[in-house]
Simulated assay, not measured.
Amino acid sequence: MKQVADIITRLQMMTQDGSKSDRRLAALVLADLDFASKAAISEIAARADVSEPTVTRFCRNLGCEGVRDFKFWLAQAIAIGGLYLMPAPLNRDAREQRIAAAITVGATQAIERIAASLDMSTLMSVAERLSASRHVLCIGSGGTSSMMATEMQNRLFRLGVSVVAQVDGQLQRMYAAVATSETTVLAFSISGYAKSVIDSVVVARQYGARTVAITGPGSALAKAAEIVIPFQHGEDSNIYKPTSSRYALLAVVDMIATATAESRDSNVLESLRRIKLSLNTLKVDDPRLPLGD
């Protein structure tokens, strides 16, 4: 069997470059994906006004072994990307407040879900470990997870923690290879299957580092790490707005940072004072501005 990487793209190309019957069949499938994925070959042939052998030939021209194989790939495409292939109608008449509400409600709900599910005793023990570590390595791969690794570095360095963030896969593995028993690795992955992150956790543990993963429970990363803060993401059906789960992950980052600051007690205040003073002196003399943000 030929490898069918993206049946939808192949169908779209077929509507432009295929034979007359192939173009007709491709257009029919794209117009009614649900029908095409479930209908018998006779029903597809009748609707397209072609013969059954023509349908079989069409499927093979797409790189499939036959109609059954074609339906398998089509069903998979619908299951994975159905929201984007058959989106709910967009109400363009609604005013700007609809967009503001979609973002704020989604963010609030995501944060409330993660707050309700967190084991705070685990989070507090992680904060104590970070505070006591000689070195902290934050790693993440992909849009949200890499952003959170960098943000955790931004939160911890100002507390006097020796911390570095790496989002490049090769550098993650290299830094993990020089970890010691005084290192804590904080790994972010929403899916839990980012290979460089998993590899780095495995390597760091080999050299005695403590490893913490903020990831999906039961994932490969969760199994590789010593300590897991479970993160389960849930999205709504609005495919036009950015994912709300990153607000929840950011809330976890802020909780860990706050707990770490409190575990260091007044030791953090001098560093924070210096940062505030230097920024207000060199940038804008406004003490109301956030600390370094």
Rank of each mutant, 00 (worst) to 15 (best):
Arg47Phe: 00
Ala46Met: 03
Arg92Leu: 14
Asp32Met: 07
Arg60Lys: 15
Asp49Met: 13
Ala46Val: 06
Gln109Arg: 02
Gly106Thr: 04
Gln97Ser: 08
Ala46Arg: 05
Ala45Ser: 09
Leu90Phe: 07
Ser42Asn: 15
Cys64Tyr: 00
Val67Met: 14
Leu33Glu: 10
Tyr84Phe: 15
Ile80Gln: 12
Thr104Gly: 09
Ala36Gly: 06
Gly63Ile: 00
Ile111Thr: 08
Arg60Ser: 06
Leu90Lys: 09
Ser42Phe: 14
Ala88Gly: 05
Cys59Phe: 08
Ile44Arg: 02
Lys38Cys: 10
Ala46Asp: 06
Asn91Leu: 09
Leu85Ile: 04
Gly82Ile: 00
Ile78Ala: 05
Gly106Val: 03
Cys64Gly: 01
Asp32Glu: 09
Phe35Gly: 06
Ala39Ile: 09
Lys38Gln: 13
Pro89Ala: 04
Val67Gly: 08
Ile78Ser: 04
Cys59Val: 10
Ala45His: 03
Gly106Glu: 01
Glu65Asp: 09
Ala110Leu: 02
Leu90Asp: 08
Thr104Phe: 11
Asp34Asn: 14
Leu90Trp: 06
Gln76His: 11
Ala88Phe: 04
Leu62Tyr: 07
Thr54Tyr: 02
Arg98Leu: 12
Ile41Asn: 12
Thr108His: 14
Ala39Asn: 09
Thr56Ile: 13
Ala101Leu: 14
Leu90His: 07
Ala107Lys: 01
Ala100Tyr: 15
Asp93Ala: 08
Ile99Trp: 01
Pro89Phe: 00
Ala77Ser: 13
Thr56Ala: 12
Ile78Tyr: 01
Val50Trp: 05
Ile103Thr: 03
Ser37Arg: 03
Arg98Asn: 13
Ala79Pro: 09
Phe58Tyr: 09
Pro87Ala: 00
Glu52Trp: 08
Arg57His: 07
Phe58Lys: 05
Ala100Ser: 12
Asp93Phe: 06
Glu65Phe: 04
Arg95Ala: 14
Phe70Ile: 11
Gln76Glu: 15
Ala36Trp: 03
Leu33Ala: 11
Arg98Thr: 12
Gly82Cys: 04
Asp49Ser: 14
Cys64Asn: 01
Thr54Lys: 01
Ala77Met: 06
Ala101Asp: 15
Ala107Met: 04
Trp73Arg: 04
Thr108Trp: 07
Ala101Ser: 13
Ser42Ile: 15
Asp69Lys: 00
Ala40Thr: 06
Ala107Trp: 02
Ala107His: 05
Ile111Val: 13
Lys38Leu: 11
Asp93Met: 06
Gly66Val: 03
Ala36Pro: 05
Met86Gly: 07
Ala100Gly: 12
Val50Leu: 04
Thr56Lys: 14
Thr56Gly: 14
Pro89Trp: 01
Leu62His: 04
Ile44Glu: 01
Glu96Lys: 07
Ala31Asn: 14
Phe72Gln: 10
Pro53Tyr: 00
